[in-house]
Every structure is written in structure tokens, then in C-alpha cells.
Amino acid sequence: MKQALIIIDVQEAFFNLPENYLYQKEDLVLRINQWIAAARSAEVPVIFIQHTDYDNINDEFYVDSPDWQLYHGLDIRAEDVVSRKTTWDSFHETELAVVLEGKSIDQLIFAGAQTEFCLDTTIRAAYSRGYKSNILAKNSHSTLANAVLTAPQIIEHHEHIWNGRFVTIRELDEHIF
């Protein structure tokens, strides 16, 4: 299978603004960079998704604002694709589908934020678009607590729903690439 590693919305807003701190944010970046290194070693393309707001200048994801930038601690290189999106779905009105088709990709490996929003929506959209053998990078996605659930509860809940249906959850040491 021809693979691509998709990193969703790991942006400065989740590291600069205390109210937006991702659960275990430092470990998250370390694990994502490990996945990126493994993908690069196997010559698997790395695609970064960047949530973008073009309308509300006060939004933390407003285009070109400091908090909108992809997180500075990620191993991003010039050859990587960066796709901007304006909704929770990384495919909706973006070039992602065209990029994947152009590279003949048939398996997606997901990591990023937020578990129950953009990651969930994109994982399900990918499955609906015919990507049926996708992988979720274990311990490489995160979110924030909400009024009902803690971040670990949200992560566990979504992994339980996704695994074996929309993705297979795998550890990096399982020779994914």
C-alpha cells in the first residue's frame, strides 16, 4: 500500500494559550515527530493540515496570526504538503483529495488534534471516500477536557469507536512503514 502520514491541526494555539493546552502536549509532539521521522525514512509523504479562519480576526486560527502557525516544534520540511482547511473535515473544500490522488495514496496514517473534532471528522470522511485500511498513530493525538469528559476519556472513547471500524490503532514499533 502507498501511504501518507497526515498530521492534523498541531498549531501554536494549542501550546501558547493555556485555555487551549492539549492533554500531554509535550509528549504528543515528541511522538508525532517520531512518526514523521519513520515516515521520512520510508519515503512516505508527510502532509500537515492547518485549521484556518479567514473571517474572524479574533479567532486563534486566524490566517497568519502567531497562534495559527503550525507548531514550531514539529519537524516540518519544505517538501511537506501543508493544506489549509476551514472546517473540521480536512477534505472539505481543500486540495487534500487531489494531493492524495496525485501521489496514488491508498492508506492514511493519522495523528494530531483535536481527537473529537477535526481528527474524528477527517477519519470518518477518509473512510467514506474509500480509504478503508487507515491507521491511527497510537498516543499521537490529543484534545482538551470539556464540561462532560476529561481529555483521556475523550481519547479512549474515540479510539474504542474508531479501532477496527475506521482505522486500526498501531504503535510505531509495529513496522507501519
Rank of each mutant, 00 (worst) to 15 (best):
I176G: 06
A111G: 09
Y21D: 02
L96N: 03
I76G: 00
T94M: 10
R165P: 10
Y131H: 02
H160W: 07
L30Y: 13
D120F: 01
L28A: 00
D9H: 10
K2H: 12
A78L: 07
T143H: 08
G112A: 06
A113M: 08
I109R: 02
I6M: 03
I155G: 00
H158A: 01
T168C: 11
T87W: 11
A37D: 11
N139Y: 06
P18C: 07
P66G: 02
R40I: 08
A113E: 01
V99F: 15
D59K: 03
H51D: 02
E156Q: 14
E60N: 04
D67T: 10
L30S: 13
I123N: 04
S133Y: 10
A42F: 08
H157S: 12
N58D: 08
I7R: 05
L70M: 02
E26C: 00
V46T: 06
N16R: 15
W68L: 02
V98Q: 15
S104K: 15
Y62F: 08
G130H: 04
K132A: 01
L74P: 00
N16M: 15
W35V: 14
T94D: 08
I176F: 09
F15K: 08
W68G: 00
R165S: 13
E101I: 13
R77F: 05
F61K: 02
H175P: 13
K85Y: 04
H92S: 10
Y21Q: 02
H92G: 02
A78H: 05
S133F: 06
Y131P: 00
N33Q: 06
H160V: 08
K132P: 01
L70R: 05
Q114R: 07
E79G: 06
A39H: 12
G73N: 03
A151E: 05
D53T: 05
P45W: 09
Q107S: 10
A78F: 09
Q34H: 14
L144P: 04
T168E: 14
N20K: 12
I36M: 11
R165N: 15
F14K: 01
I176K: 07
L96G: 10
S65D: 00
W35I: 12
E12W: 15
D55M: 09
E174Q: 15
N134T: 07
D89L: 07
V99I: 15
V29P: 03
I7A: 07
F177Q: 07
V29W: 09
A38T: 14
V81D: 15
T168L: 14
F110L: 08
T87L: 12
E93S: 10
V10G: 13
